[in-house]
Amino acid sequence: MMRVTIFVSLKEGVLDPQGKAVERSLHSLGFAEVQEVRMGKYMELSLNLPSREEAEKRVREMCARLLANPVIEDYRFEIE
């Protein structure tokens, strides 16, 4: 069994009103050092596959077809 963690983030240049709101909240709490906040998604998957290569291929397909929208999102993943 392999555990996969997937991170989906907004592409550069895509507006992130949620990140902006969190950024403002951090500033108002006194964390003046915060330059920018970008929100994203984190997913955990358990896979039943024989090899890491196969897992990478399948996860890439999952991200491209469903888990991320290529118009606005990038993704990366880690396999353990």
């Binding site: 895509v14 507006l15 009103p17 949620q18 709101a21 929208n69 118009v71 606005i72």
Partner: peptide
Amino acid sequence: PGVLTRNSSL
């Protein structure tokens, strides 16, 4: 084409 995202006002 394109995509619909969260309203800018949240």
